[in-house]
Design a protein around this nucleic acid. Sequence first.
DNA 1: TTGAGGCATGTAACCGGTTACTCTATTTTT
DNA 2: AAAAATAGAGTAACCGGTTACATGCCTCAA
Lengths: 348, 348
Amino acid sequence: MATLRDVAREAGVSVATASRAINGLGNVTAPTRAAVMEAVKKLNFVPHSGARSLTRRKTDTIGVILPDLFGEFFSEIIRGIDLVAHESGMHLLLGNMHGSSHETATVIASMRGRVDGLLLMPPEVKPEMLADNLDPALPTVLLNYDASTLDLPFVAVDNYHGAYTMTEALIERGARQIVHIAGPKHNRDARDRQRGFSDAMAKLVGERSPVILPGDFSEEAGAEAARLLVQGQLPADAVFAANDLMALGCILQLAEAGVAVPEDVMVAGFDDIPLARHITPSLTTMQVKIDRLGSTAMMLLLRLLRGDTLGTASANVLTPTLIARGTTGGPAGLARAAKIPTTETVRP
Amino acid sequence: MATLRDVAREAGVSVATASRAINGLGNVTAPTRAAVMEAVKKLNFVPHSGARSLTRRKTDTIGVILPDLFGEFFSEIIRGIDLVAHESGMHLLLGNMHGSSHETATVIASMRGRVDGLLLMPPEVKPEMLADNLDPALPTVLLNYDASTLDLPFVAVDNYHGAYTMTEALIERGARQIVHIAGPKHNRDARDRQRGFSDAMAKLVGERSPVILPGDFSEEAGAEAARLLVQGQLPADAVFAANDLMALGCILQLAEAGVAVPEDVMVAGFDDIPLARHITPSLTTMQVKIDRLGSTAMMLLLRLLRGDTLGTASANVLTPTLIARGTTGGPAGLARAAKIPTTETVRP
DNA sequence: TTGAGGCATGTAACCGGTTACTCTATTTTT
DNA sequence: AAAAATAGAGTAACCGGTTACATGCCTCAA
């Protein structure tokens, strides 16, 4: 592969001149520039970005570290990030800790010298652990992690209010005995959703200890919860699952047991995965625009890179939207759902 | 940020010794190494990967260039790639040409000096165009692109035989007048699937000009095809859509028109997206293990990087698997589908 | 005793670019 | 016409590591 030196020799100029010509800087006469460009073409020269970034101290790359790469959630985040990054000519270097939080330090370290900034979605680790490993000189934006103790900008989904809103909506539709299927205990999103649910129940119907079934965000967990519900003869007129997948598992299992949704019991989820629209009856859920999570974070990071000092971080909370569908008594059934391609939005 | 020079000074040794100590090479006494390590800790030194890769001429990064980042297809590919890459301590640098094929050259060029190898999924571009832009010295594996003219290794899905198999299966179940909903004309996958269908129809039932409706892989295109089918009174006992999304749109529209699936007409798709299992009736489809596409390509690339010369490329074709479900008369209905969590596989 | 061989360490070139600074020739100013 | 300013090009230091080679010291065989 040809280097800049080769080009300079071929064109009969110095490396400095060649560099200036190629980068379109001033102080190069037209004929000289033409000669250099010809040499570039002839030798098939492509600048070595690695070397360039070493001197420029700029890589035009941002590191994206995610706890996992599974499922739509992460691909949507990446898509959102890429959308903004691409506009600014930035590249994305993916780092994945594959769920093991002790890899965090390694992954962060390996980014040194490769990236201009970091988009980090930490697993459940202590803030101090992050503080120890993050390079304070490296612009960093956190995703889905409240970093109030560190003072880093972050973007998060307002799970608490989302869950509160959904619970409120269920109550408005007449539900009083709402059962919550919780997510993994160590998961912050899950905990926030549960809190939102509990607070709404306490405040709106005075129920201080609603039934909360354990779950882990999987379809099977939803089914298991439904079994508990049916076999245990628990009194319930609505089920609010901490995510759509569990809601789905629950609905299938209820159908299995002959429980009608939404007539006997309403069901609601959280996330609005594509499946939600298409199952029968279609699933009422809180829509989270996950790609926005990524693109917002990336925009924040770009501002950081530009040298802006970010103000309060409060503006970076994404509020989920209530999408009312069949499982809470809206238009149900395949045929009728098909008539309403765009989901309707109800916001109290 | 501390550099190796700082560490060396702090430890009272030369940069060479510091480098050796840190990288665990020989010829360093225990006390010296300890001193260096202490300095590393004290100064919080993290090696600058950019600089390191410049001298080592190795970046431990592979470039992944995809035509787009939309949807599950691409996220699954990335997941497959990452799975293998992570095991070998490789990083992933994402390049996205956002559908515009003229960006291909730019994106490939920008990878120079940043990556050790390339995983490239080209859009519909001429092979010569690729040959012009690819660095012959850079190990490259192509995804979903038959590169027989270039002699690059590639991994592809056997769309032709997949479609042939599905058509055969529909015929075995009694269908004779099968309508195909095609994908985008310029899309290679779509064309291969259509060929597989046409050939099977010609060979197995002697039908040389079966009905082929236009489509573009979208849900709406499937619905539109269904409308044509119903309004046009086309004789059909089965519909084979070039992908699941169109099959889905078709099913919804048929239900709308009062056509029973699978009783009046069978429907089949291609891809096996997660939705396929969950709609009612569940969708018969050809399962493509997309993550395998990514992981296989990555494994190939690793071998290339190790210096292996790859043999014939024939082994790198992934064959889709027939998944028979409700829309072709298998176990139908939500309740019964839930009883069979693992999909059953029928391979003639 | 002497020299060969081995080990720990240092010196400096190098990877492939960028850029501060220098030098020369030309143009502008007075 | 002489002095000053400026444009075009070159020299070499530098980014932050790695590593070939040189050096000095110690051990061991002859």
